[in-house]
Design a protein around this nucleic acid. Structure first.
Lengths: 165, 165
DNA sequence: GGTGAAAGCGAGGACCA
DNA sequence: TGGTCCTCGCTTTCACC
């Protein structure tokens, strides 16, 4: 944690404009060199490198990941699956969460408010494979009462860049 | 595009086990060095480097991005917003899509099947800010008839790793 | 497709202002 | 905090298998 005197306090990390620029760059391209990054933010590479490390250690940066193209990997189907559990006992929710963690086709999962309890994002090679997956895997997960599937017809925006105001 | 004689044809790219291992590593950590990557896949760094470049150029790897922690950036609210348009004329859908692209709070958006037309993932500093955003931005987008918001209470899985079978 | 070597550059640390 | 310098290791490319 840094002890800057200036800069916005966003959440738990005191960030200035330079940090925001760094984060913007790293969201766009996680493999930029510190040398290039330091040019963009008008610093020399050492302080720039130290800021990156501080952002990593503070947890602002959770990690760096390659973004793959699902279709080129053979995943022609992306589905958003809303799941309703039978009851709201803690252990039912917990075992559902644990089970979901272990299913690679589920690429994202949130516990949500509203009519359903969980929102899953699922990939599958095709509709048939998704159907089997829904029937044989999702519906058999602990406590599942109802599921509603909605298919992605087109991905309008998939870069998950957080805005840095 | 490579012309390998063996390996699975997944989608449009002929991949072998080594490519899959490379992609798995890069999904986990986009900043691994080629030197380290080549150790993991039992190659020397040159062919490993060429494979990575081929995967990038073929479009299997779309990019490398830093994953940031929304809460540490002050985004305490993540919402899934389902949007229904007034009609299904192409131009209405198109202008909605264009509008959405320009809104940084919308971190992801899909055109979907089912009761609603679009599924958005939105970040906001708090519920009040989200409410204002929904009222002043989302509801005023071209052609919007109805929106339904569901809030993420807990992120169960956010690493968006695609499985490499 | 793979290997090994070589040049050049960046990461990361020590130290000063 | 930012800047300079320095060194080791990696990246990248080459010629060759």
């Amino acid at each position: 944690m840094k002890g800057k005197e200036y800069g916005f306090v966003l959440g738990k990390f005191a960030m200035d404009e330079i940090d925001k620029k760094i984060l913007t760059s790293l969201q766009n391209d996680a493999r930029v060199t510190v040398a290039h990054l330091s040019e963009q933010v008008s610093l020399t590479s050492s302080p720039c490198w130290r800021r990156v490390k501080a952002l990593e250690e503070s947890g602002v940066i959770r990690g760096y990941h390659a973004e793959l193209d699902p279709r080129r990997l053979g995943y022609d189907v992306t589905a958003f699956v809303s799941v309703m559990l039978e009851n709201h006992r803690i252990d039912v929710g917990d075992s559902f969460e644990v089970a979901v963690q272990g299913i690679p086709q589920v690429v994202a999962c949130h516990n949500v408010s509203g009519r359903y309890d969980f929102m899953l994002e699922v990939v599958a090679t095709d509709l048939e494979a998704f159907g089997e997956f829904a029937r044989n895997v999702l519906r058999t997960l602990p406590g599942v009462k109802e599921i509603y599937s909605s298919f992605s017809l087109k991905s309008i925006k998939h870069q998950r860049r957080l805005p840095l105001p």
